[in-house]
């Protein structure tokens, strides 16, 4: 399929898991890709893979929280491909290794989580939106989490960040709607990624018991929705919060 032929998509946190699959499916639809991630080896491997399938891919290794990396990514995109049409704000972290009861938590951890899971998406959107608005077409897709709706014990900072992303999504959607730019949030449920592979089997089994479809999701389950929202099928959908969670929450 080539429904996104000629479009330029930027994916943050693109090297692994959901971000990687989003990049691959957007490339399958014909988009060129700008990929940003901390992990340079995995990133280069992905860029090489996309290049082989006739997708022009630009890889920027670095921390999305840094203004210099953000600017380098947009400048490289504009110099080598053109203005960004589709922004997938995928990067986010729960600092799970530091997860703890809120009463024992450290504000420095909250700041890290809010920075990477909320502020970074705002900064990327701030940089990408003017050109989208000028050209009358754009898609911003913010990766939230079902934790934003259901909460998650031990991850209050993460749930707060992801919930903040929903309010941001709705507000930006209102501002950009008259200019042909849609803004939506996607909330994955329990998805099989590196983070979940480290779960103990009994915990994993308990998680699966709580999912009506009785399985964990795959990164592709989420990426397919992202690809749909990025395409023409999503042109009248804006400001929405969409779950991909096998029926765990039901919004």
């Amino acid at each position: 399929m080539t429904s996104l032929a000629g479009k330029i998509a930027m994916v943050t946190g693109a090297a692994n898991g959901i971000g990687r699959k989003c990049a691959c499916l957007l490339a399958d639809e014909g988009a060129d890709l700008v990929l940003i991630d901390l992990e340079d080896e995995a990133l280069e491997a992905l860029a090489a893979e996309l290049d082989r399938q006739d997708c022009n891919a630009v890889a920027i290794a670095g921390d999305c929280r840094e203004d210099e990396i953000l600017e380098r990514a947009f400048e490289a995109a504009e110099a080598r491909l053109g203005a960004v049409d589709i922004l997938v704000n995928n990067v986010g972290q729960s600092a799970r290794e530091r997860a703890d009861e809120f009463v024992g938590s450290d504000p420095a951890t909250w700041r890290f989580v809010l920075e990477v899971s909320l502020m970074t998406s705002m900064r990327f959107a701030r940089r990408a939106a003017p050109a989208m608005r000028e050209r009358g077409w754009g898609r911003i897709i913010n990766m939230s989490s079902d934790a934003a709706l259901a909460g998650d014990a031990g991850l209050a900072d993460y749930a707060a960040a992801k919930s903040g992303l929903l309010g941001f999504t709705r507000s930006l959607a209102r501002e950009l709607a008259p200019h042909g730019v849609t803004v939506n949030a996607v909330c994955p449920g329990a998805i099989r990624t590196r983070a979940t592979e480290q779960m103990a089997p009994d915990i994993m089994a308990r998680v699966v018991r709580g999912i009506p479809m009785a399985r964990m999701g795959e990164p592709e389950d989420v990426a397919r929705l992202v690809a749909f929202l990025a395409g023409e099928g999503g042109r009248y959908i804006t400001g929405q919060t969409l779950l991909v969670d096998g029926g765990r929450w039901m919004l």
């Binding site: 709705r170 479809m213 795959e218 989420v222 009248y236 959908i237 400001g239 039901m250």
Partner: peptide, 20 residues
């Protein structure tokens, strides 16, 4: 099959009205 892990959702297709 693109939506094979999506069930129980209400998807607003409304050009920005319900903000669901």
């Amino acid at each position: 099959d693109e939506a094979s892990f999506i069930t129980g959702s209400a998807l607003a297709v409304d050009g920005g009205r319900a903000f669901h």
